[in-house]
């Protein structure tokens, strides 16, 4: 495991988040470095999604600071966003575009990853020869895998995933878990919420439970 230098990667200090006057969480601090995975647990409504949206920089924390390589993520703006990839509850897949077009768009919006061509990314999630199939004609599980294939086409260091396994069958889950393992082995970082267990055999895992 690469020695975690003091301020590389994600560094959260005393994060707090309120929803219409209830404190979802408070004084939440953690650090996420290369090869580490953050697994968020907690019952529904405990603020897991809100925390992920804060990590993405889409939502301002009500208190506390969030730093990426020592710099506040809101000051970094697009520079920080080039380092992350996010798959939320909604897939973010356009129904009227084909699988290939969806991936080409995702690649253009982020920092393109030379290692994976569109074709290779589709093959990696076992959507062989689906490049010109309209997303509307894919099953929910296939659409989910297409959304996760988006992670491969950009050089995102930090993957932020909200319930990645929804509508995936057991084989789909195996594929995705191997994606995670490769990503972490390659020095990537992961922040994920999930109801069923995420088996990342030897990865360095940080567990945070928001409903305690």
């Amino acid at each position: 495991m690469a020695a975690v230098a003091t301020d590389t990667g994600l560094n959260a200090r005393h994060l707090a988040c309120m929803r219409n006057d209830r404190n979802l969480f408070e004084q939440l601090s953690f650090r996420l470095g290369c090869g580490q995975a953050l697994i968020l647990e907690g019952r529904n409504g405990s603020g897991k999604t809100s925390l992920l949206r804060i990590l993405c920089g889409m939502r301002q924390p009500d208190d506390g600071r969030l730093h990426w390589d020592g710099e506040d993520i809101f000051r970094l703006g697009p520079e920080y966003h080039a380092q992350i990839a996010y798959v939320g509850h909604r897939d973010g897949v356009k129904q009227d575009l084909s699988a290939g077009e969806n991936l080409r768009l995702a690649r253009g919006l982020g920092a393109p990853n030379p290692a994976f061509s569109i074709e290779a990314a589709l093959d990696r999630v076992e959507l062989w020869e689906h490049e010109d199939v309209l997303a509307r004609n894919l099953s929910a599980g296939q659409q989910r895998r297409l959304a996760l294939a988006r992670l491969l086409v950009t050089r995102a260091k930090l993957w932020i995933l909200d319930e990645p396994f929804t509508s995936l069958d057991s084989h789909g889950i195996d594929i995705v878990e191997s994606l995670f393992a490769n990503h972490l082995a390659g020095g990537g970082m992961l922040a994920v919420t999930s109801h069923h267990p995420v088996s990342l055999n030897d990865a360095d895992i940080i567990r945070i439970n928001l409903s305690t």
Binding site: C56, G57, P78, E79, G88, R90, G92, V93, A106, L109
Partner: peptide, 14 residues
């Protein structure tokens, strides 16, 4: 509605 607006918010471009 399909979540791609969120992808714009976290894209690498302003």
């Amino acid at each position: 509605e399909d979540g791609s607006l969120e992808q714009f918010l976290i894209s690498a471009q302003p």
